[in-house]
Amino acid sequence: MIPAAFAYARPTTIDEALQAVASGGEDVKIMAGGQSLIPVMRLRLAAPETVVDLTKVAELRGVRDDGDAIVIGAMTTHSDVISDPLIAQHAPLIAEATETVADRQVRHRGTFGGALAHADPAGDLPAVALALDAEFVIAGLGGRRTVPAAEFFVDYLTTALAEGELLVEIRIPKLPGTWGMHYEKFNRVAQAWSIVAVAALVRTEGGRIAEARIGLTNMGPTPLRASGVEAALVDVEATAESVAAAAEHAAEGTSPSSDLNGQADYREHLAKVLTRRAVTVAAGL
């Protein structure tokens, strides 16, 4: 469990970091909390020439209020996310999902941005970001750009981040109206990744479900929105029957993998059950 030799840079600003990435040679890896990167390097599944460690870049850390959105620095750790008051107020779903991530030690080092940039289909936060319509602020030597969540997750472990680019922060739009949220995660042992999970946001209006947003974890190479379920939950009676009927659409358009934890058809089934459960809780039923 010894990684191959690599050069190491520890910048203190975003600009320095971008420079370090640009000058790091052929194969540069950005390191956030290292909780996904280091194991892969120790198993020698990755052998980068240079590792650029972001832990000392203070401006990447923390959560701020930016009017119609809250902004989470990419290097904000999972444990800081869990205890953050702005997140608790505006996007408690993120904290709820983050609490299911790994164990205390991993959450102490692992970061929100690192988890999103890693884009593991079994990771819990991408589907949450997708359901919240998060926006990803990306910096490169040429300047900054903002990518909506729907375009950020491109493929298995692949995002819109181009070579040399850095994920800087994630903007979470504040939600107007009355929203209930729930993250329903299914795994075999505590501290494990999701076999399937469902992030549900439901806006209710006087006993009716006005709209819903459903994010699916591990139902394909990228996180997905269950648009069939969402369509079935526009302005409907908030009843167990309507939720159950809508949840039947959860597997539409998904392409889950078959692995030790479950074959594709089982995952499709799980998506429906978990969607029903997630929406039921989010709708306060």
Binding site: L45, A122, Y156, D259, L260
Partner: peptide, 28 residues
């Protein structure tokens, strides 16, 4: 198939050599 966490570490990769059939993650 192993799960994809850690880029799909299994003996075909951790034994030091990977085969064509290896289902490795994008981190490689």
């Amino acid at each position: 198939a192993g799960t994809n966490a850690y880029g799909g570490a299994q003996t075909e990769t951790t034994a030091g050599v990977s085969t064509d059939a290896s289902s490795l993650g994008g981190d490689r």
